[in-house]
Design a protein around this nucleic acid. Structure first.
Lengths: 210, 210
DNA sequence: GACCTGACTAAGCGCTTGCTTAGCATGTTG
DNA sequence: CAACATGCTAAGCAAGCGCTTAGTCAGGTC
């Protein structure tokens, strides 16, 4: 379960360099992910997190300056991983249709596999300290802009046919984001299978002629 | 602002019979909607709610037995209003295409106009007392089932063309629900206009030939 | 006038919260 | 060996929490 959270936060980093932190700090962070996702940030106590990581409450403060710092680190890494994935798909070789298909597949399966991190990333924004919120808001703007640009390219090349690009982009990201709200490990579809199906639906929605 | 919340909770009830409560109780409930939506249930204090309603903290307990009772009432009324709207659209006269278009338009515009109530309904489920959660979960099942049945009808009649009905239904409800996460009064589109655009996108997604 | 009722407030109780302090082992360095 | 750094715990502090208590006051009833 925390393996999935770790994969969502540090997609291609080896286990011994994740977030450049010690093993204990990582355990605390993954315990925080679990509890923030299950109960919400405000309903989670520092005692919950420390206990889940097998330590006393005070140990948390050796590795992180505050409860909010844990949220910030999760939110920042989660958003960065999402942006990386979006930029990789949008900038891949090939036409707009293939790139959009990959974008939706990767975006959706990321939100399914890492639904715990995804819930925090998308539903606990309001709990972030304002300074951190601004950083994260900028990452979100870049994600939206990448999707917008890809749709615009597709429309220009005749591959897509939509009347309102902005609404279409909203719908595409919205579909993927909301997966983190309802997906559970008990869902019948694998993240990859869900990604493929959503890819088909989105291409149709965009009026893809392919 | 609370007008919108009131409309989302008691869609066609006259102002003097909303929830069959006194004016003061209604003011407290709408203050709770505002704060729960803005800060989240756990971050909201009973003092916040009472102060926003222009009263002392103790006054809340004359009208409601607990903070959780406020959440329960909001969640229950919000889910019931959504189910009513879905059933009305799905059971209207006409073919599957027209009914689905109306369902998406109404479902989407409800989540836009009443995005405060919508946020609570969809993102504070975990804070509900277990007994109340079960009631609400049943309402959610009925909403999902109505959408599922309508898509099934459309596929049977040849109006729709989807490979996986369950995933399609998920996508339809998911698109509408997520509107409550990102929509604000400052959005450029009116709830109705957004509903119309989402209606077009969804019909395409379902492979509608009309 | 005496009494009751219903909506409200001032004050505060018991508890939990995020976080701090003081101290204790262990391993490393001179 | 002494001296120190590191990673942890036991205990607890100030603040804030949901909720209760005791009492005020206006309006109605006899």
């Amino acid at each position: 379960m925390s393996d999935q959270a770790a994969a969502a936060l540090w997609p291609d980093r080896p286990a011994d360099a994740q977030g450049e932190r010690t093993e204990t700090a990582r355990r605390l962070l993954l315990a925080a992910v679990d509890s923030f996702a299950r109960r919400g940030y405000h309903a989670t106590t520092t005692r919950d997190i420390a206990t889940a990581a097998g330590m006393s409450p005070a140990a948390l403060y050796i590795h992180y300056p505050s409860k909010a710092a844990l949220l910030s680190e999760i939110s920042r890494a989660g958003h960065q991983a999402t942006l990386d994935l979006v930029l990789a798909a949008a900038g891949a070789p090939g036409g707009p249709v293939e790139r959009m298909r990959r974008l939706v597949e990767d975006f959706t399966s990321w939100h399914a596999r890492g639904h715990t991190v995804g819930r925090i990333v998308n539903h606990e924004l309001h709990a972030l300290p304002e300074e951190e919120f601004e950083v994260v808001a900028e990452l979100r703007r870049q994600i939206e802009e990448a999707v917008l640009a890809l749709i615009r390219q597709g429309v220009a090349s005749g591959a897509f046919d939509v009347q309102d690009i902005r609404t279409a982009a909203r719908a595409v990201t919205s579909l993927g984001i909301d997966v983190s709200r309802w997906y559970t490990e008990r869902s019948s579809e694998t993240p990859e299978e869900l990604g493929r199906r959503y890819g088909v639906l989105v291409l149709r929605m965009l009026g893809s002629t392919a």
